[in-house]
């Protein structure tokens, strides 16, 4: 594996190997005995063209726990032309001999464009509405740790599928690993030909969540409201927000997941988000560091 640009196209053994490696890092992280010599002398640059404190921090922590030198670069989102900035930044970074380049960008395909121009291993930390591979890996690890397997689980991904890179990466990963994936949301937030991705599409939570093992909520971006794709927040919450009543459609012990940051009262009710036994939202964050450590290691040949 040279770069991690997308989950689409990854084979089941490659995904399983990453999850297994991440699993071992979960234990090491908890014991505080991480192999700090593993990436000693390597340089990791977090190149963020879009603000994201949690993903950036997670990669930073992952790199530091393995002993890499970590540099954060946040390129102003207000740049007149992000594309030009991307290419200019690329040649500069390439001259710095960095080993690992973590890229977040508002445009789909930007990390792939960059990967063609640099020598470093590029890790997609979220590109536009395309993919967010490490999020899908950490979600898979979280589910696997609770259910032992991904195979034949019913996973309902709910909300703004159209604009969600998290949803796309999760669909690819979960279907590849044998889970049954459902997409649930209003028709205006469902991408065209979604069923061609190997999923079943639902437009109401009652049938979409029926017998689900996992309910994964997505963030509704407030600017979507301006595009008129849904009429109002209160209407959205009424029909697609996850509260205890809608959660009752799923299996009694169904896991509750959210990639964060949450809009409480928009796509998820606080009682659900903070559910003491079923919400694994905080655990997802913990798994994020382990998964990113595994990815950094996989992309760093000894």
């Amino acid at each position: 594996m040279r770069h991690l640009l997308a989950i689409e196209g990854m084979a089941p053994p490659a995904i399983a190997a990453l999850l297994d490696l991440a699993e071992s890092y979960v234990l090491l992280n908890r014991s505080g005995k991480t192999p700090r010599d593993r990436l000693r002398g390597r340089t990791l640059i977090n190149l963020f063209f879009e603000d994201s404190t949690r993903t950036r921090t997670s990669f930073e922590l992952a790199g530091k726990r393995l002993g890499a030198d970590v540099i954060n670069m946040t390129v102003s989102a207000s740049s007149v032309n992000k594309g030009e900035t991307l290419l200019d930044t690329t040649s500069t970074l390439n001259a710095m001999n960095c080993d690992l380049l973590v890229v977040r960008h508002a445009q789909s395909g930007a990390p792939a464009l960059l990967a063609r121009k640099v020598d470093a291993a590029v890790i997609n930390a979220g590109d536009g509405t395309h993919e967010h591979p490490t999020q899908a890996l950490l979600d898979a690890l979280t589910i696997r740790r609770h259910r032992g397997t991904l195979e034949n689980l019913i996973v309902a991904i709910c909300g703004d599928i159209l604009h969600s890179r998290v949803a796309r990466s999760n669909v690819h990963l979960l279907t590849t690993m044998g889970a049954c994936v459902r997409l649930v949301g209003p028709p205006t937030l469902m991408p065209a030909a979604a069923e061609r991705l190997g999923v079943v599409v639902f437009h109401d939570m009652a049938t979409g969540l029926a017998d689900a093992d996992v309910v994964m909520m997505l963030r509704l971006q407030q600017e979507r409201m301006a595009g008129g794709l849904v009429p109002s927040v209160r209407e959205y919450f009424r029909f697609y927000g996850l509260d205890m009543a809608k959660l009752a459609f799923a299996k009694p012990e169904a896991l509750i997941m959210h990639p964060g940051p949450m809009n409480r009262g928009v796509e998820i009710d606080s009682a659900v988000a903070d559910h003491p036994t079923r919400s694994v939202i905080r655990e997802q964050v913990e798994m994020g560091v382990a998964v990113r450590m595994a990815v950094l290691e996989m992309l760093s040949p000894r």
């Binding site: 395909g109 536009g128 395309h130 796309r168 065209a192 991705l197």
Partner: peptide
């Protein structure tokens, strides 16, 4: 063009 490919690539589609 809106459809499976644009959906996979996460590109805004034109029907």
């Amino acid at each position: 063009t809106e459809g499976e490919l644009a959906t996979r690539l996460g590109l805004p589609g034109i029907p």
